[in-house]
């Protein structure tokens, strides 16, 4: 395990997570959540959990982002918080 990359990605994960919750546009939140999932996937592959990382890359970064975008498309995009 390479700890400088580990620490850098841990910080990026927190930034992406806060960004997904702060942004005022739900479509932006969906995309930032996809970025968050992908950072998570990188973190898990650093930790050696290849199966979990593979699942997260296909499920979290792929399909759940599509679900979010579809749901935002069917509801509204604007939000106040």
């Amino acid at each position: 395990m390479i700890w400088p990359i580990d620490l850098a990605i841990l910080t990026l994960v927190v930034i992406a997570g806060i960004g997904a919750l702060m942004v005022k546009d739900l479509l932006g939140a969906a995309i930032l959540f996809g970025a968050y999932s992908f950072m998570m996937c990188l973190l898990w592959s650093i930790m050696g959990a290849v199966d979990v990382a593979f699942t997260e890359a296909s499920v979290g970064a792929g399909v759940s982002t599509v679900f979010f975008v579809a749901a935002v498309f069917r509801t509204s995009r604007r939000t106040k918080d």
């Binding site: 997904a20 919750l21 739900l26 939140a29 749901a71 939000t79 918080d81």
Partner: peptide
Amino acid sequence: NNLVKKIVGMNI
């Protein structure tokens, strides 16, 4: 306040 934001929070 927003339901989609709550769901994002649940996933985090």
